[in-house]
Design a protein around this nucleic acid. Structure first.
Lengths: 355, 355
DNA sequence: TTGACAAATGTTAGCGCTATCATTCACATT
DNA sequence: AATGTGAATGATAGCGCTAACATTTGTCAA
């Protein structure tokens, strides 16, 4: 088994050149303060001259652990998770932790596999989306020898730490906003019925039910993955089932945008004849015409905090607060603003004249 | 150094229980056909009973290579790369290859670091975005002991393999489409001036220049990352600089959507007074109202083929064709269709009458 | 029956690093 | 000068796996 690696430079090579033992080099790399400044500098010079790069596999094998932070999300295409990932990467920047992404594709089986794969790597920590892991996955996680952060939601019984918010409450608040705006025949558009969607639907129901305004015929859902096109289709379905619907809470922003386009296509006045509220408040919502009401969720911050929390825990700084609720914020915009003049507002309000 | 790993079950444990040598177990895992069916079954049973999971670090150290496919993209938030990633994951599904994502954030330095990090892991392959690596990075890649696929673009001198298309030609075709549609005072909106954006701008220029229709005053760009909001701002800038502009080629779909909203806000008729063409043809473009012309790029397919090509190469199936050009497709839609009646299409027809 | 040959399995020797404990050495204390 | 102390460093022994070669077993032709 000869040297087929690229650089071929090993710790031993560095040690020899620097005139110290391998162990001192190892220490100079991992605990610089336990090595004399003289050795440290000499070693550093040799490392640079030789272009030494440590072999992570050898380190992992010898040390029995790695710097890997495994992240498991159900989708890599979804904007929401993209923002969360960016937050995680931002917080990991400049730390020794190396983020590794796994995509469960909304499949509990794939998720369990991923957890197993990650655990076999002896990661320093795990960030996993949601709180609805299968019993098998939960078992693995409960006995995992690493720190764990669950993200996207809050709930009881965290495995370890949690950063998220209540989807039920957020949807409830959005629905309440529609009520406050004066809408009474409110529908729900939902796609991809994952557990978080379900809880949002629950929040919707719980808000309308006591007021006697819940009408199951106005709830239109599909298991298909969400898209703008689908938002249009769901809106069309809703209008054919319950034509007198006067507002919709869309389970996410893509659907809301699709619903808005469908209204425009049908010459239905928004917000006059139809109020529209999205969920997540993607960047586009404020820029749309008319601007679209949505529920702002702190996705980037969620990722950032999850990673920071993990980092702190791994440095031994125990947090008193293992569950962080980031909340949400209903952002009222033109699509639910009935005070806008139809003919002025219809279309959204901001009205620069072309020169 | 005692057993602090979780499972603690090692190859040797399995071998002992199954009454064979460690090497046979290793072979049963890696080359099942080089082990008798009898041993194989016995070993499989023991593995399941003990819950053995191989230690990837030990394997990597002993074998001098891993199953890791490193993927380097400049952004994890961008829809385009999200689609590519999905393609890669799809093609990796069910193979022994383990995809690992690195985010260079459009920084050549971060990219070089990532390449170095990935190479230290002795990956089986690397997928890297673009053809504009720094000289240092290029050096690392040229002498890398693994297969490499460059994606997103095609160009001369691949390090190894390439899957992409010509951004210059694609932009040229889009511009040509605007010309064919009858527009003559065509502008360009661009954000995040990465190399691919630059080449699209070049394609734009090369198409208009010979016709004497290139007007640098109509080219509005910014280094900021692209967004729908930014599309609106750039459109506003263009209109104040060159108010008689009659069409825009937007460097990507977000900008195009923002530009459309801005036109709607200003009551500028699209496609009558202003033609709009995007780039990439995200799902939303067809669903918008009016539907937005764009250039379809095969992002998912790009990821899929990059991974398949890599897989084939790693299995030793040499391709005659190391550079795959996936092409593109201009998709004409309402925003550039001047045959549409104004009053129907103009402004997106957002002209709902109050009931 | 015997030898030849291939298939199946085993033995040996690390891969490159770090945990652990042992040693060295400079300096302060008595 | 003898002793104690802590900082710096070194020696040793693997971590769990696989490459390479060695050996055993099974099969078949002569």
């Amino acid at each position: 088994m000869k040297n087929r690696g690229r650089s071929g430079v090993t710790l031993a090579d560095v040690a020899r050149e620097a005139g110290v033992s391998a162990m001192t080099v190892s220490r100079a790399l991992r605990n610089p303060d336990r090595v004399s400044a003289r050795s440290r500098d000499a070693i550093q010079a040799v490392i640079e001259r030789l272009g030494y790069v440590p072999d992570p596999a050898a380190r992992a094998l010898a040390a029995g652990r790695t710097n890997v932070i495994g992240v498991i999300v159900p989708s890599v295409t979804n904007n929401v998770f993209a923002d969360v990932m960016r937050g995680i990467y931002d917080a990991a920047e400049g730390t020794p932790w190396q983020v590794q992404l796994g995509n469960s594709r909304y499949s509990p089986i794939a998720e369990e596999d991923l957890v197993r794969t990650f655990l076999s790597q002896k990661p320093a920590g795990l960030i996993i989306s949601g709180i609805d892991q299968s019993e098998a996955t939960a078992g693995l996680l409960r006995s995992a020898p690493c720190r764990i952060v669950q993200i996207m939601e809050t709930g009881p019984d965290p495995f370890d730490m949690m950063v998220g918010f209540s989807h039920r409450e957020a949807a409830g608040a959005a629905t309440r906003h529609l009520l406050d705006a004066g809408y009474r025949r409110i529908g729900f558009l939902g796609a991809r019925l994952d557990p978080r969607t379900q809880r949002r639907l629950e929040g919707f129901r719980v808000c309308l039910s006591p007021a006697g305004l819940l009408d199951e015929a106005r709830i239109v859902t599909t298991p298909q993955p969400s898209s703008v096109t689908l938002g249009g289709h769901l809106m069309a379905d809703l209008l054919s089932t319950a034509p007198d619907t006067d507002a919709v809470f869309c389970n996410n922003d893509d659907l809301a945008v699709g619903a808005l386009f469908e209204c425009q296509r049908r010459r239905i006045a928004v917000p006059g004849q139809m109020g529209i509220c999205g969920f997540n408040d993607l960047e586009m919502m404020a820029a749309a015409h008319p601007s679209i009401t949505s529920v702002l969720t702190f996705r980037h911050e969620m990722g950032r905090q999850a990673m920071s929390l993990l980092g702190a825990a791994l440095r031994g700084e125990e947090t008193s607060q293992p569950v962080v609720d980031l909340g949400f914020e209903v952002v009222p915009r033109a699509t639910t603003d009935r005070t806008l003049q139809p003919g002025r507002a219809e279309g959204g309000g901001v009205r620069a004249r072309a020169p």
